[in-house]
């Protein structure tokens, strides 16, 4: 009962972008140091001996890359074994995952002497390693970029899984509002609003400007305002508010879907990488 609830505090003296991209300076400098160390070793290797995956240097790089990959995988293992209350914070595992992934790639490239391997199996291994690390980097970019866009540009916060339920709720409320409203408001609702209240509508537009599309789409409410009697102004406001919320939900849906789906590019192929690596190690040891 003594642990503190920790927040990775932002450094007040650092620019916002730096805080965003590098949560922890010690981890970052540790990574830079490790990369530098690896490169120094490689230069020593290149100047004093031969660069070959099969010699002591090359095998050393290969073993290092494997160890790094195992460390990287611990994050996945931790996520899947939360019930067992694994030791340490998930954040630490993620640091190992991200920086370890970079080290893995570097050691793998050193193992192949920064050349494309000629064997079919090793060629695939090499390519998949690049893909996995590349998709990981893409994931980092997505995970840094999208939350900022969502929190800065939208007023509502939405739980992805509840999107259909929320839209249904908006539709029911909107229908209640227009049921007793002026004919023109009802027509407007039927033609301009109701079609959007059926399901979430992802749009590419939200990637370019999270708010721009929304403002343009609620403008017609203002054109209608002049045509409505005073008694229906409040209904119009309410309907406009609901529609605005729906559009914000769409924006959330569009971007949060990317936050979830990029993993398809990363996770299954990582599993293939592990299998291929295992086969590679086995074949090296066997033959």
């Amino acid at each position: 009962m003594k642990k503190t609830a920790i927040y990775q505090r932002k450094r007040p003296d650092s620019p916002r972008w730096l805080n965003k991209w590098i949560q922890s300076l010690p981890w970052f400098f540790g990574f830079v140091l490790a990369v530098f160390g690896c490169l120094v070793i490689f230069v020593v290797n290149a100047t004093t001996g031969r660069i070959h995956p099969g010699n002591a240097w090359g095998l050393g790089y290969g073993i290092g890359a494997t160890v790094a990959l195992v460390a990287v995988l611990l994050y996945t293992v931790r996520r899947r074994t939360m019930k067992l209350r694994p030791p340490g914070r998930a954040w630490t595992y993620l640091q190992v995952h991200v920086y370890g992934g970079g080290i893995f790639l570097l050691l793998m490239l050193m193992h192949t002497g920064f050349r494309i391997p000629s064997g079919i199996h090793t060629w695939w291994l090499w390519l998949i390693s690049l893909w996995v690390v590349g998709s990981g980097v893409l994931g980092i970019v997505i995970q840094k970029w999208i939350p900022t866009v969502l929190s800065a540009g939208l007023a509502v916060e939405v739980h992805y899984d509840r999107v259909p339920e929320l839209i249904e709720h908006i539709r029911t409320r909107s229908e209640k509002i227009v049921a007793s409203a002026d004919e023109r408001l009802r027509e407007f609702y039927e033609s301009r609003v109701a079609p959007s209240l059926v399901a979430p509508e992802p749009r590419l537009m939200y990637f370019i400007d999270i708010t721009g599309g929304i403002h343009a789409r609620i403008k017609p409410f203002e054109y209608l305002r002049a045509l409505l009697p005073a008694s229906d102004q409040e209904s119009l406001d309410e309907l406009k508010e609901l529609f605005n919320t729906k559009l914000e939900i769409d924006a959330h849906y569009t971007l949060q879907r990317v936050l979830r789906t990029w993993l398809i590019l990363h996770v299954p192929i990582s599993m293939v990488l592990v299998v291929l690596l295992f086969i590679h190690i086995f074949s090296v040891l066997y033959y």
Partner: peptide, 15 residues
């Protein structure tokens, strides 16, 4: 638990 609140502990982004 000795590890503190699970919500905080399991957030990979420390947010």
């Amino acid at each position: 638990s000795d590890d503190g609140p699970a919500c905080v502990n399991n957030c990979p982004h420390s947010c």
